[in-house]
């Protein structure tokens, strides 16, 4: 059961991370709206690697995979290998091809390849549905962490966590819009090592 007390040390750590992320996000904010979501050309190899790695190490991988290991033992490796090995398939079969094609997102590629704006809309809708499914796992993790940290109900914690995430995303910028992924990469490695 979740104890209903406020955990001050994790709260302090999370607060520090959020504040530092906000400051970094504000300092390195991009002023052109075009490159807000995806900007690939202007990012170096090591930086994009760090961004991918910090996306890999999410709430789902820390909480969900630990839970699956608790339930399934050795066979939980299927999940880790599934999505880590998937990076190789993605790179070999798709990434290098669409990079040479000159399009950097799946909807752009589909629209150019089949020369159809309808296909672009379908592709974008599919991408949004996939990320919705992904977000369910992440927000479940956020809700659990906030409920544990503040000792409150799961539903309230979830709403609070979503608000915090929302503010954070708007102010500090989404994926790759700032230096935040690279900083989170370092922080996640430091925290993992200190466990």
């Amino acid at each position: 059961m979740i104890e209903s007390t406020v955990k001050y040390t994790p709260f302090f750590l999370l607060g520090c991370v959020l504040v530092v992320s906000l400051v970094v996000g504000l300092l390195t904010r991009r002023h052109d709206k075009g490159g807000y979501g995806i900007q690939v050309r202007s990012i170096g190899h090591a930086k994009i690697g760090a961004a991918i790695a910090s996306n890999w190490m999410s709430a789902a991988s820390f909480l969900g995979i630990a839970g699956i290991f608790f339930l399934n033992g050795y066979f939980a490796f299927a999940y880790i290998l599934g999505w880590t090995g998937g990076y190789v398939l993605l790179l070999v079969l798709m990434g290098s091809q669409i990079r040479r094609f000159g399009k950097y997102t799946a909807p752009d590629f589909v629209a150019a390849r089949y020369d159809s704006p309808v296909a672009r809309v379908f592709s974008a809708v599919i991408a949004v549905v996939i990320s919705l499914i992904y977000c369910v796992a992440q927000y479940k993790g956020i809700g659990l962490v906030f409920a544990w940290m503040f000792g409150i109900e799961y539903t309230q914690a979830l709403i609070f966590g979503v608000l915090v995430t929302f503010v954070f995303l708007i102010v500090a910028g989404a994926i790759k819009a700032s230096r935040n992924p690279q900083m989170h990469y370092l922080l996640l490695i430091l925290f993992s090592l200190s466990r």
Binding site: T84, G85, Y87, V88, L91, V92, S96
Partner: peptide, 8 residues
């Protein structure tokens, strides 16, 4: 896997 990505 990381090595394979690098190699490729």
């Amino acid at each position: 896997f990381i090595f394979l990505c690098f190699f490729f």
